[in-house]
């Protein structure tokens, strides 16, 4: 991949989906630190083991913003188990690719949903 962003990345950067803080989430995944460049928070709402809503907030570059935005679209409507199986490669594929130096940004999205589910399970005493 070159250093330029795909149209899908630019579209999600310009018009992020499911952006913003969620009121009363069932789980929150907090990933990254400003020192490392990017911070991603993923919020989920779960009903009968299905992620009925997913939102995000991101401080970071266009790739981080687009990856988080795409992730929320992918996991919405999925069961917890299906969402856990989502990888950064799925996010990258939907975005039509990312520059090599930006691949780590998609990992923040994958880690974000995994952390959110972990948080959900702890809050609701679910088995890991």
């Amino acid at each position: 991949m070159s250093n330029t962003y795909t149209d899908q990345v630019l579209e999600h950067f310009k018009n992020p989906r499911n952006l913003g803080k969620m009121q009363d989430p069932d789980g929150v995944g907090k990933i990254g630190s400003p020192e490392c460049g990017d911070v991603v928070w993923v919020y989920i709402k779960v009903v009968d083991n299905v992620i009925v809503d997913c939102k995000f907030q991101t401080l970071g570059c266009a790739a981080a913003i687009a990856s988080s935005s795409m992730l929320t679209e992918i996991v919405k409507g999925k069961t917890i188990e299906e969402a856990l199986a989502v990888t950064n490669n799925d996010v990258v594929k939907e975005l039509g690719g990312l520059p090599n130096k930006k691949m780590h940004c998609s990992l923040l999205a994958e880690d974000g949903i995994k952390e959110a589910i972990k948080d959900y399970r702890i809050r609701h005493n679910k088995n890991m």
Partner: peptide, 8 residues
């Protein structure tokens, strides 16, 4: 806009 997007 970017500050509103940030969780911090």
């Amino acid at each position: 806009k970017l500050r509103q997007m940030s969780p911090l």
